[in-house]
Design a protein around this nucleic acid. Structure first.
Lengths: 339, 339
DNA sequence: CACCACTAGGCGAACCTTCGCCTGGTCCGA
DNA sequence: TCGGACCAGGCGAAGGTTCGCCTAGTGGTG
């Protein structure tokens, strides 16, 4: 099917080693005529080098494995795109697999069998998976978007507690005191950290967050709707709700609307992630921008450094930014500010 | 770094060929004691077979390349996830790359160098790229989510004209006559086809769609906002707007709200794709569900069939489904129906 | 005329597997 | 005691590259 160096060599009447050298431009003494013949033969046969054979010899494949757990999540997709682009601009190919739970180990094994040079983990669902953590720590250079049990794997991301704090400070400044929160699944570390930061930020402003004003739900609009409904059943008087991402926030807005609670006049809402639609919700959503694309890029770049044997930081934090829009607009008189 | 068969063999005191046979469970006559020694040695050295060497010999890598052009687009991500899962449950690994425009050819070359068994294209941006089409047609088994110039590559997807028709029929039934449309980039084939179907469906109901009630924009909420604004400037009397996807529809809703036009009372809105937030917009969005995940799965399954040398259909169509929600609710009296 | 340097390539080995075929020893029966 | 059958593995080649080192021929120089 594919022409090999030997085929090209036979066509050009030289040895395949010579073809190899000529085609990759090595400094080898070959007459111009032969050189031309070789190139012509390669062209004619449609020769494409075989990276498998190269990799075998070189003992490095110039490829990176990415473990994702939910490409449908916009934030994750951003991360992956950033990482993939960084890898490819450095000549590395990328293998991506979605590891849903326990098959993560099987996928990881596949990556090792294919001898990827390194692994990037964008799968928070695996953050409790000790076995995967061990493999990544001991057998192969890795970088994560999240921690693994036992540590030892550099993490690139943003400070979730900082994020929580930013939101809390904003709400405190607006004078809110009856504050609620709709979180993602509590088993996720980001949820715990973000909550903690939020709580601490509120405390700094003298505001308390009782546990019954915190509801846990899934990372979805549906979850946000259900979560906010429950929160409002428990305490109809909340004047501000922090949703752990924009999709949840969207559901929260929907629940509030259904009950005739006006945003921001009766209740303010803050999301997280600054998803591409958030500026166009009604009302436009106040949120925290987390630079996921850049995070992916940095993570990959760190991983490539590690593969090259350089010393790298064990933790990189990228700053997040609070983006204030209508859903918390203090006076509710401000007009829509785009993005 | 990695232990090879030879290392294991040395450790167990047998030839590496014997190790190979034992470890992969080939029917070879080996005493139980030796067998145990080999397994122990493999375990101790952490032996993991080298797929590169296998692939070299086998002349097939059990891997598929996916060309994507926008993983941040939810629909594409769905497709990719479906495809990836199907591939992996068939023992194939997946390499994913984002080809933004002209580097598509470079990426494709990378895939060929790595000797992927086939290529799946989920990059509508490349649908005019004749060179890539030619490579995919002649050199390597491929399947696409979209056409390529010159054809010859099986396509799996949904009928876009059918989608347009479904929406048109719905609007006609509701009695709308002043209908507008906000489309994605006209250069995209899906846009042309969907528009054509929509126009035809309207015509069947005796409704015309003048060109000045069609606005072209980007696949984003921002685009939808701008597009709807322009549409309303041109003709404030439109009573229904078909947006080419839900993100655009979201922008359209925003623009309508800004002008104080009530939905659905004053103007109905229909989107497309049934994105996960659409049921929770205010009002909940009527849309067309396109089974992208299933499409990805079918596309991959078709590709795998092709790789096995089976004859496959050149076109697979998966049905779409109109999902009626509040944004077109006829009487506007109906209550929210979830999903 | 002998020696050297240079030109134009060739050779062998190594990377890790797989696979078909071969071999040396043991045991059994006639 | 000889021949055959079976047990327990070994051997060689192949797949496509790369890389260091080797060599046959030619022309020049002292």
């Amino acid at each position: 099917m594919y022409a090999s160096l030997k085929d090209v060599a036979a066509h050009a009447g030289v040895s395949f080693q010579t073809v190899s050298k000529v085609l990759k431009g090595a400094p080898v003494a070959v007459s111009d005529a032969t050189r031309a013949r070789i190139h012509a033969a390669a062209e004619e046969l449609g020769y494409v080098p075989n990276e498998l054979a190269r990799g075998l010899l070189r003992r490095s494949t110039y490829s990176i494995g990415i473990i994702a757990d939910d490409l449908e999540d916009w934030a994750m997709a951003q991360f992956v795109v950033g990482a993939e682009q960084e890898a490819r601009s450095n000549g590395h190919a990328v293998m991506i697999g979605t590891a849903l739970g326990s098959d993560g180990l099987a996928y990881l094994r596949q990556l090792v069998e294919r001898r990827v040079d390194g692994v990037l983990s964008a799968a928070p669902r695996l953050e409790k998976h000790a076995e995967i953590g061990a493999v990544l720590r001991e057998r192969i250079p890795a970088v994560g978007l999240h921690h693994f049990p036992g540590g030892g794997i550099p993490v690139v991301g943003s400070s979730h507690s900082q994020t929580g704090r930013q939101v809390a400070t904003h709400l405190v400044e607006l004078g809110h005191r009856a504050v609620g929160m709709v979180t993602g699944p509590r088993s996720r570390r980001v949820v715990a950290t973000r909550s903690k930061g939020f709580r601490a930020g509120l405390a700094d402003g003298g505001v308390e967050l009782p546990v019954d004003r915190v509801v846990e739900t899934a990372w979805s609009a549906e979850g946000g709707f259900a979560g906010a409904s429950e929160l409002l059943d428990r305490d109809p008087a909340v004047s501000a709700i922090f949703a752990h991402n924009d999709l949840i926030a969207l559901g929260v807005l929907s629940a509030l609307h259904q009950r005739g609670i006006r945003v921001p006049d009766d209740c303010a809402v803050v999301g997280c992630d600054d998803m591409p639609f958030s500026a166009y919700l009604t009302p436009a959503l106040t949120t925290v921008r987390i630079p996921m694309r850049e995070t992916g890029q940095r993570a990959m770049s760190l991983l490539l450094d590690r593969i090259r044997g350089e010393e790298v930081e064990s933790r990189v934090n990228l700053p997040t930014e609070l983006i204030v829009r209508e859903s918390t607009a203090g006076s509710s008189k401000e007009k829509r500010k785009k993005r």
